[in-house]
């Protein structure tokens, strides 16, 4: 690959240096310009959330006067706290259940030979990649016969029986742990659960954290699932459904809608800053291991 071009094409360094400075400036102008565009939506959302409802219907960009009123109304006129509590219940329980069921499964798939392992693994991959709508009808019918539609349970409980994407991701992490450690633990008299608890889990903490964060955010952001299962029961609405149906069910103006939008963004960003590393590493790992 190094056989590109010819040596005779060596150039003098001076214009190259000058070119580099120009290049540097150019790149940073593009970077900053785009960054402004990327930030602008959030800025506009914030500005509108600070306007009075009369202003939001007029052609103004800058609030005058500034008011926190929309935020007060978001909490007093809208069951925002309950929406957040529901989202949190969904995300926390789904994540906890997923971990309890998927870690052992991923461990077996990564470390133990058995007949049918290949078929099982392929099934997990297909289950992970298949659009959920393909199986939506029978699963909906099932929960409906159990009388559990109208709650978040149909979205939480299945995680007790493993989540395909998480199993896959965890297995990839477990594979990176050299098998010598597990072997040593086995010689010390540990069973498979012992090996998992004493060796694999401590060593795979970053991977487990990344998987948990994925699950958490997927559940927190989920719209399709709650729309299917909870739309008839406002008591169980997560924040995604609440916000999406806000303009039609409460008919609020843009000001209060934007206030709620801001409030929905904030927790996610806070969590991101606390778990930034895990996050970015996790994302990179899902894709790069291609």
């Amino acid at each position: 690959m190094t056989a590109v071009g010819t040596r005779s094409a060596l150039r003098s360094t001076r214009p190259r240096h000058f070119g580099r400075v120009l290049n540097w400036i150019g790149q940073h102008v593009v970077l900053s310009g785009l960054a402004v565009l990327f930030l602008a939506p959030v800025v506009f959302v914030f500005l509108t959330s600070m306007m009075t409802s009369n202003q939001t219907l007029t052609a103004t960009i800058w609030p005058d006067p500034w008011t926190w009123d929309n935020y007060v109304r978001a909490f007093t006129q809208v069951p925002l706290v309950r929406w957040f509590a529901n989202s949190a219940t969904y995300a926390v329980l789904a994540t906890a259940f997923m971990l309890a069921s998927s870690i052992p499964a991923a461990y077996v798939l990564a470390r133990i030979r058995f007949r049918g392992a290949n078929i099982l693994f392929t099934a997990i991959i297909i289950a992970m990649l298949l659009p959920p709508q393909v199986t939506a009808v029978p699963i909906y019918v099932m929960w409906s016969k159990l009388g559990m539609t109208g709650t978040l349970l149909p979205l939480i409980l299945p995680n007790l029986l493993g989540d395909a994407f998480s199993i896959f991701l965890l297995r990839q992490f477990f594979l990176t742990i050299p098998s010598e450690y597990a072997d040593a633990a086995r010689i010390d008299g540990n069973g498979e659960w012992g090996v998992l608890a004493r060796v694999i889990i401590p060593m795979a903490k970053p991977g487990i954290a990344a998987t948990a964060i994925f699950m958490f955010f997927n559940s927190w952001n989920d719209y399709y699932g709650p729309l299917l299962y909870t739309s008839e029961n406002e008591q169980w609405w997560p924040v995604a459904i609440g916000l999406a149906s806000f303009r039609s069910s409460h008919g609020g103006d843009w000001g209060i809608t934007m206030a709620i939008t801001m409030l929905v963004m904030v927790p996610v960003v806070i969590i991101f800053f606390f778990a930034q590393r895990t996050f970015v590493e996790g994302i990179a790992l899902t894709g790069v291991k291609g």
Partner: peptide
């Protein structure tokens, strides 16, 4: 309150709520 046709149908199909 606030139950549209889609929600009503869902709830009726699900059983006895």
């Amino acid at each position: 309150p606030g139950q549209d046709d889609e929600k009503l149908q869902k709830a009726i199909s699900a059983g006895n709520t």
